[in-house]
């Protein structure tokens, strides 16, 4: 029964990874790639300052996005799980949060243009309020826009797992805490947050890996002015430099897997489904 899935994953996941690892040792000329066993791609990668800067940038995006998606996602899930009292409303509001996930990311990125552009809504509103005199240039095509788009696209990856674990918290635990004299903040800090940890971890895995593996959001929202590792790879691909793209991809994959490995120590995914 599990054979077809195994076959798909072997052919479209395992083999591609092996292929990338192999090609990362190959050599490239301007027109073709040549099988070889050569560490040159890695030497170049680790010898270049650009690599370290770009990796640092990738972690920076991941961290800042994580902070925002977690705080927004937790608050939203908390509201849905503990303040909305009827199940129907919970489902309706929850669906409202998840529907954008099933629509196009690219269009959701494009839709920030009228907001953030030089003559966009944000700038004209701020000018009309007298907050600024000249339009801000850093709204669109900047790190700010990149992070904003990430938060916009990925917060629901936090909302869903956190809401899921919160819904399974036994309400009598909270009553018990209240009866024992705990204040709202104490209940939140000492009861709800510890019990929600698995959901937080799953959301974190989603957000961190999506942001670390991204290349299109960074390219589009920074107007090609910032780079992360994904963009480094896609630039190499555009130049047909597949071996060097592969070497970068291998390092990125290892980095992501190490991060996941660390996060998985805090949660048993199979138990949480």
């Amino acid at each position: 029964m599990a054979l077809p899935i195994m076959a798909v994953l072997v052919f479209f996941l395992v083999l591609p990874i092996l292929m990338i690892v192999t090609v990362s040792f190959w050599q490239a000329t301007e027109f073709s790639i040549i099988p070889a066993f050569d560490l040159e791609n890695y030497e170049f990668l680790f010898g270049s300052n650009v690599t370290y800067r770009v990796f640092f940038n990738t972690f920076k995006y991941a961290f800042i996005t994580w902070v925002f998606t977690l705080s927004i996602g937790f608050t939203v899930a908390y509201f849905l799980a503990f303040h909305v009292r009827s199940l129907t409303w919970q489902i309706v509001l929850f669906l409202l949060c998840t529907i954008p996930f099933w629509t196009s990311n690219i269009i959701r990125m494009i839709s920030w243009i009228p907001f953030l552009g030089r003559n966009g809504i944000a700038n004209s509103t701020l000018i009309s309020w007298g907050v600024i005199d000249e339009p801000l240039d850093w709204l669109l095509f900047s790190d700010f826009a990149v992070i904003l788009a990430f938060v916009h696209l990925y917060t629901l990856f936090m909302v869903v797992p956190i809401f899921n674990t919160m819904m399974r918290i036994d309400k009598s635990l909270i009553e018990a805490a209240r009866d024992a004299g705990a204040s709202g903040t104490q209940i939140l800090w000492n009861v709800i947050i510890p019990l929600t940890k698995p959901g937080i971890m799953i959301g974190t895995i989603f957000v961190v890996t999506l942001v670390m593996g991204d290349f299109i959001t960074v390219r589009f929202m920074s107007g090609s002015q910032s780079a992360n590792v994904g963009r480094l790879i896609s630039n190499d691909i555009a130049l047909l430099a597949y071996p060097s793209a592969s070497a970068t991809a291998v390092v990125l994959l290892l980095t992501v897997l190490i991060v996941i490995g660390i996060l998985l120590r805090f949660v048993d995914i199979r138990k949480e489904l």
């Binding site: 599990a2 996941l13 890996t209 593996g213 990125l252 994959l253």
Partner: peptide, 27 residues
């Protein structure tokens, strides 16, 4: 192989998309 398959599924979920694109394209 059930636990191997389970980890493959998780890998499939978390692997940066561009790696699939690049790898399948290369193959």
């Amino acid at each position: 192989g059930s636990s191997i398959l389970f980890y493959l599924i998780i890998t499939s979920l978390v692997i940066p998309s561009i790696l699939i694109s690049l790898g399948v394209g290369l193959i």
